[in-house]
Design a protein around this nucleic acid. Sequence first.
DNA 1: CGCAAATGTAGTCGATGACAACAATGATGT
DNA 2: ACATCATTGTTGTCATCGACTACATTTGCG
Lengths: 196, 196
Amino acid sequence: MPDRPYHHGNLRQELLAEAARTVRERGAGALSLRQLARDAGVSHAAPRRHFADRQALLDALAETGFVRLGDELRAAAEGTADGFEARLQATAEAYIHFATEDAALLEMMFASKRGVEAEPNDAAYRAFSVMLDLIRQGQESGALRIGEPERVGLILFATMQGIAALISAGMIETDGLDELVGDAISRFLRGSRATA
Amino acid sequence: MPDRPYHHGNLRQELLAEAARTVRERGAGALSLRQLARDAGVSHAAPRRHFADRQALLDALAETGFVRLGDELRAAAEGTADGFEARLQATAEAYIHFATEDAALLEMMFASKRGVEAEPNDAAYRAFSVMLDLIRQGQESGALRIGEPERVGLILFATMQGIAALISAGMIETDGLDELVGDAISRFLRGSRATA
DNA sequence: CGCAAATGTAGTCGATGACAACAATGATGT
DNA sequence: ACATCATTGTTGTCATCGACTACATTTGCG
């Protein structure tokens, strides 16, 4: 039986992966650096070599969350070829899917940014830019007419995030969920294609 | 100099008030039962008589938050006499005001409900019912035509909460905020008064 | 080969939440 | 009045945690 080598080799990644698991299953509050260390089979101080403190771990987790969210949104948007409205719908569903699968993570992602001004190149912005691109595309195709893309995208993003929050809060039954999302989207579309 | 009496007399309320202050200024994570006890001038175990554990304190705080949010929304909705759209606008502004003044609390409020199915009579629902009433009123006045009030109210609520989340996350500059909210509202209105 | 940086370990400190046993106070019924 | 009992507060303790320091092992580079 091979004793574990002195150097783990991939500790940072393993810590992040296990942390993501814990957050998904038991929430961010249940996350303990020492417990992560035990799970990974290293000493209690080892995580410190990779994360200056607990918050740094949470921030890194939030960052990977935004990356993944951006990827999933983009995949949904680009994996649907049937025109603007269908793409928008698919993207919204992807967002809601993420939000239901990883409610605690999503909450952390937003919490991690409180009190920090947004940098135009971070993962959060790249996730948002999927919306932006979508909006621009809709405007070119004529499905959308009103407003600067920045603002319209923000409103769209907010709508999705708001629905996600209400789901997390248990204020929306998961039954009629797709229908609700579809309704919100088409309402947004109707409101955005009339002339101002 | 009067020694503090053995019984504080109003510990629960004082703990909640001080906790609200701490959450507002330094976030929910910075809240410690022992620190609260010190602030109130009682022993470290005294809070336990009023809150079974830390989470119970947070839950109570969230509850009072929903009560206050409901009150403020209702005051805004009812304190504006100039017709449906203005009322809607005022309510939205009240929501955003709450969200900017008490970002961490609002986040807590939603987090506290995760994994619990909504009860139709709790404070969260009463806050939401302000929206509901507003929607019904709008439909009677003819300003809104589409959809069951429940669903439309949910979408409206989600839109506000979403904008609030983006503000907390620093993704929305506070400059053009009122304008953005107004835009979101009128977009929602346009989308909801066209025929389905 | 040797040295420095990276990575992991052991030990410690102060703070915390939870709990138990005990004390003071106040309310209630007679 | 007063005995009794629930309420509310106190002291003491424990396990856990995050943060920090000093030290050990490994890896990689010159």
